[in-house]
């Protein structure tokens, strides 16, 4: 059965645009100009995805399990050049920059080919799936991820959950045990629910834009995060990608300087599905 299916679809399977005819490709756009670094998205993620709260000491030792994290970067002090530049920066120092960082659902994910048991793979709708039950914990994927957004269960964190806090766990997804890798799923449980809903309503291959909302997007007070189907030409996320001239399938974008869109570590050719819009900075004239 498998072999027949294989032979019939051989030429399709190895096509570069294998996912061309799939109705969905989930993507995200994050406007860093709107991000205030409040961390509401992080909290929402903890609640939605049953992330363990590891406590102060373990957090400090690097065991934090925040699938979504707010990274802080500071600009160089006034009159000193930025990284890679010779001239002093024009931008005055304005405190920290924030960048929410989570799994970029890379289309050429470096974590996928290195897993010995194929616990992580690419779904047809453009997600980088992690199969918890299959993971044996070799942690190769974690090393090979340039964003370092894969989180390993170093302990059985759920055992530390005090009663009655287990009551607030989200029943839509599992609680992970020690020894397995986990990461942001773009709230796959919500995506599933949204697709099911669309099917019930009689249009199985098109989810209306805005009906699937990730937890971080839902909570963001400044609406910095936009999530949606990149294949849907009318979706907001597609519009943003088009406006900021970020295209798929390339490791270098051909666009003018003043267009803000970019993808992190694009030059590694990992094809992230998340586009960031750079912060607009004032210059001292």
């Amino acid at each position: 059965m498998g072999l027949r299916r294989m032979l019939e679809n051989w030429s399709d399977l190895r096509k570069r645009d294998y996912y061309e005819n799939e109705p969905y490709m989930w993507g995200m756009a994050i406007d860093l100009d709107k991000c205030t670094g409040c961390g509401a998205c992080v909290t929402a993620c903890y609640v939605e995805n049953n992330l363990p709260v590891v406590g102060k000491e373990k957090f400090a030792s690097g065991y934090a399990m925040h699938w979504m994290r707010i990274e802080h970067y500071w600009t160089e002090p006034d009159d000193s050049p930025e990284i890679g530049q010779k001239e002093p920066s024009d931008h005055p120092e304005r405190g920290a920059h924030f960048i929410p960082m989570m799994c970029q659902q890379c289309n050429h994910a470096p974590c996928e080919p290195v897993c010995p048991v194929a616990a992580t793979y690419h779904t047809p709708d453009g997600l980088n799936a992690q199969v918890y039950n299959r993971c044996v914990g070799s942690r190769y994927c974690g090393n090979n991820c340039p964003f370092k957004v894969r989180y390993f269960n170093f302990f059985d964190f759920w055992k530390d959950l005090p009663e009655p806090l287990e009551q607030q766990l989200n029943p839509d997804l599992s609680v992970r045990s020690k020894g397995i890798m986990e990461k942001c799923t773009f709230c796959v449980q919500r995506i599933r629910a949204g697709k099911d809903h669309a099917e019930d309503e009689g249009h199985p291959h098109s989810v209306e834009d805005g009906t699937i909302v990730t937890a971080c997007q839902q909570t963001c007070p400044t609406q910095a995060i936009v999530f949606g189907n990149l294949k849907d030409k009318s979706s907001r996320v597609h519009q943003l990608w088009a406006d900021h001239q970020v295209k798929l399938n390339r490791h270098e974008q051909d666009k003018p300087e003043d267009v803000r869109g970019y993808r992190v570590f694009e030059e590694l050719n990992v094809e992230p599905s998340v586009m960031y819009m750079d912060r607009v900075r004032d210059t001292e004239i």
């Binding site: 373990k58 030792s61 690097g62 065991y63 934090a64 914990g137 942690r139 190769y140 974690g142 090393n143 370092k148 894969r150 989180y151 390993f152 269960n153 170093f154 302990f155 059985d156 020690k178 020894g179």
Partner: peptide, 15 residues
């Protein structure tokens, strides 16, 4: 019994 955390590896020191 306790998980690999006792070995004092962490993220990004998975290996």
């Amino acid at each position: 019994d306790n998980g690999l955390g006792v070995a004092l590896m962490n993220r990004p020191h998975y290996w």
